[in-house]
């Protein structure tokens, strides 16, 4: 069976709960007063995604571009199955790994080794695979004796190395990646780049959210330009990036 990713008419509203929207008391009183005339369900809702549809086959490398708040990260989270769409459907065939936030659920109080073990368990690995995972990560991240100390005391460089080594140690068929992943200091990037490219090449399908034009042009075979939660343009990198950059100039 081939890997596949289908988004069909995906829409999603993001409720914003702040201050009084979290209060049970306020809600009860609102219900009571609503019965007496004034009716308002004043919940702030952001229309995060609207009618997103696309289909990706093995070999497709999709880049998501758009300004901050255009819905790129929300779309990645929806594709990863973390947010469930209010209408429409997401179907993904194949093992998936989503690299969404830098710490990726890493627990700062736990040791490096414990974090590696947990990541292995999240991915359903057995004991021997987890040992291999630990060896692989330890070697790449070059943490030495720090591996058995809490991540909290690591230098920021060590945390980045561990996070990166962990994220790239598990090779999925479908890879979702947020732009933070490409940021990092130049020295480390030099070493990391080969490993990252290896993982990207190994994946059947890549979805990448980014601001950097060079990354899109180098890695992607298709680009979707998101604007206000909708697809503004969808096509080859040349065509879409030309439009996208022209908007910047205008």
């Amino acid at each position: 069976m081939r890997s596949e990713m289908v988004a069909d008419q995906v829409s999603l509203d993001f409720p914003l709960y702040h201050g009084s929207a979290r209060s049970l008391k306020k809600m009860v009183f609102k219900q009571l007063s609503a019965r007496m005339g004034s009716d308002s369900r004043s919940r702030v809702v952001v229309q995060a995604l609207r009618d997103i549809s696309f289909r990706l086959q093995p070999g497709d490398r999709l880049g998501l571009v758009g300004s901050n708040g255009a819905g790129k990260t929300t779309l990645l989270r929806t594709l990863a199955g973390i947010y469930e769409p209010m209408s429409g459907r997401v179907q993904v065939r194949g093992s998936m790994n989503a690299l969404l936030d830098p710490n990726l659920g890493m627990n700062m109080e736990l040791t490096g080794r414990e974090n590696i073990m947990l990541r292995g368990l999240y991915n359903g690995l057995n004991a021997s695979s987890i040992r291999r995972l630990a060896d692989d990560v330890a070697e790449f991240a070059n943490l030495g004796d720090f591996l058995d100390l809490p991540v909290r005391i690591y230098s920021s460089g060590m945390v980045v190395r561990l996070g990166f080594a962990l994220a790239t140690a598990i090779r999925p068929q479908v890879l979702l990646m947020d732009e933070w992943f490409l940021a990092g200091d130049a020295n480390f990037m030099e070493k990391a780049r080969a490993r990252l490219e290896d993982m990207v090449r190994g994946a059947d399908i890549l979805v990448l959210s980014t601001h950097a034009t060079s990354v899109v042009m180098e890695w992607c075979t298709r680009v979707i330009w998101m604007d206000g939660g909708r697809i503004r343009a969808d096509g080859t990198p040349d065509v879409v990036m030309a439009q996208y950059l022209a908007r910047d100039a205008a």
């Binding site: 199955g81 469930e84 179907q91 993904v92 065939r93």
Partner: peptide, 10 residues
């Protein structure tokens, strides 16, 4: 092969 299938639940 793992399959993820999520959609609206009306």
């Amino acid at each position: 092969m793992p399959v993820l299938d999520i959609g609206a639940a009306p």
